[in-house]
Design a binder for these strands. Structure first.
Lengths: 338, 338
DNA sequence: TTAATTTATGTAAGCGATTACATCTAATTT
DNA sequence: AAATTAGATGTAATCGCTTACATAAATTAA
């Protein structure tokens, strides 16, 4: 009780009157130990409050039962649900998840990858594809299984567990076009470290090019998760002579920023202008008017990513990317034009 | 490049033509190595893409440079900002953060604690005080530094980095009372694993008892983070003969649930009824009407918790709890009565 | 009953790093 | 120039655990 130091296998072994090997077996392969000793050892473990030291275990067994996830930020709800689901599946399989955030920075992401690998991560969840080739080379050289989530491409370069941002945005845009909109603006954050946004922009463009007379005004926003910067972008769009009738935002956070700004400026949505988002996070249904957006199955994506990594960890080499479907959700922020 | 196996100190040492001890010194105490060898070793590390193995390092040095945080859930934005700040401070100090979620379950939290300690966590961030004594005993026996965040009590039992939920709720309630409300309802989630909610309820009661003729109807909600269950609780309150003029919700998520339900039922907030929340997360300003709530400095709390744990890790034993101040934010969902 | 097999347990060699201590070289002092 | 000291590097023990192999005990077969 007053011993600050942690009990070790030897302590447990001594108390239970067995060898350290037996203690280890009880912990790792209980079926190989007789009922009787199993109980003795169990009692000793309990009494001492023993927890195996990860370092020793990892070193000896060469397996860490650990995986890593690197997300751009936790502040944004976009990743929360997916990561939560990811973690739950791993926890059920007895795997600990290490999470770190890269702040949308390649160097920091690389540092995080190094650290996680050093910590013994047996698999990595990465968000999106945009990162230097050197990072991929590092991963390949080390032979670390990883999956790319939140996006899906057909390039066959990586294992994806995500959705087709291009197709999803294209579909949403088609819906918008069918409603009669021709003058379409888009507020999107930086694409430099964010392939998802890049694909969404391309998807919108593709849809618009198919319709005669429709045109896109692309307005960039300095951040992908700052409602106030999106509000600023909205305000600038409203100063144009030829105003758009709808604004597609690259995600829900920006869309909400735009809606809030519209309210401030006494511009009513959707009467004066329609606004759409992407992701369908909680706020999409909370904001007034409710936000038309693209629904993304975040939970299922996290689960699928975990499942895939677990399979890879088990040695399964014949794995395929998983494409999840999204769907356009029309809500009050979007209406027919005129 | 094609070697799947990870390079080890020996590999680096061989390539650089030095001993493993020197490689280790370059990595950990570079000032003890001559400029020349430092460069040689650095080049070798670079060429091999070497990352020290955590297990070996931890075992030998007895220091993991790792801390753990256990939060009830990630789905709820309530913890995101604080944890993000916590992680940033740790990362700056070169400490890796391990995060796991307990789903508001004591057993699972205990399991997580064991795992994190096994992983070498040198400090733990826990949310709130409500957990079995046995968990605290375990922590004490192992001599693991921990801080309790998201709450602050004067009992001197733990190191807190948080705010006084009781006082904060009391202050909000006083504001409500000063606006003339007498019939006050409160929607609160389960208190069983959640001391913060318990304190908030007590705080509201304390304020109400001070005012003659004021009374509290406590309506419990089966979850602390389900807007729809809060909506249900709201609907039930609306069936009372003697309806309250204001509903205090134990957090913003529940408050938003109540507001949404009110809208569905064609009850207007705040004309027909006022609603308040707690936490001041993003949605408080997004929802219509904007939500009156208690502002909590989540970011500063995370930073302070990290700072405190770092100090404890450095051996500083004379640490004190940190109480952060909150403030009542009156917004449109709350108005004078009548 | 003895031999063969199965099952349970123990012994001891690593796993990959760090670090106390020893050694060697170079710089400084006397 | 010899003696002392400081600085750089190497040698080898060590951290806590797992596991291949060896051994002992229990069971089954012959």
């Amino acid at each position: 009780m007053f011993e600050g130091s942690k009990p070790k296998v030897d302590d447990v072994a001594r108390l239970a009157g067995v060898s350290t090997a037996t203690v280890s077996r009880v912990l790792n392969t209980p079926e190989r130990v007789s009922e009787k000793t199993r109980k003795k050892v169990g009692a000793a473990v309990e009494e001492l409050g023993y927890t195996p030291n990860f370092g020793g275990r990892y070193l000896a067994s060469q397996t860490s039962r650990t995986m890593g996830a690197i997300i751009p930020t936790m502040e944004n709800a976009i990743f929360a649900k997916g990561i939560q689901a990811f973690q739950e599946v791993l926890a059920d399989a007895g795997i600990t998840l290490l999470i770190s955030t890269s702040s949308y920075d390649h160097e920091q992401e690389f540092e995080n990858i190094r650290t996680l690998i050093g910590q013994g991560a047996e698999g990595l969840l990465l968000i999106g594809t945009a990162r230097p080739q050197s990072t991929y080379d590092f991963l390949a050289r080390r032979n670390i299984p990883y999956v790319i989530a939140w996006n899906h491409r057909w390039d066959g370069k990586h294992l994806y567990v995500g959705f087709d941002n291009h197709a999803a945005m294209r579909e949403l845009t088609q819906t918008v076009l069918e409603m009669g909109h021709k003058d379409i603006a888009m507020i999107a954050g930086p694409t430099q470290f964010n392939d998802r946004i890049e694909d969404r922009i391309a998807g919108a463009k593709a849809a618009i090019e198919e319709v005669e007379g429709a045109q896109l005004i692309l307005k960039s926003c300095a951040s992908n998760y700052s409602p106030s910067l999106a509000g600023q972008a909205f305000a600038e769009l409203m100063q144009l002579n030829h105003k758009p009738s709808v604004i597609l935002c690259s995600n829900d956070v920006l869309a909400v920023g735009a809606i809030m700004q519209a309210r401030k400026m006494n511009i009513s949505v959707p009467e004066d202008i329609s606004i759409t988002g992407f992701d369908d996070i909680d706020i999409a249904e909370i904001v007034t008017p409710t936000l038309a957006t693209v629904h993304v199955p975040h939970g299922r994506m996290g689960q699928a990513a975990a499942g895939l990594l677990l399979k890879m960890r088990a040695g399964d080499t014949n794995n395929k990317s998983i494409k999840l479907s999204t769907n356009t959700v029309v809500r009050n922020s979007l209406r027919h034009y005129p």
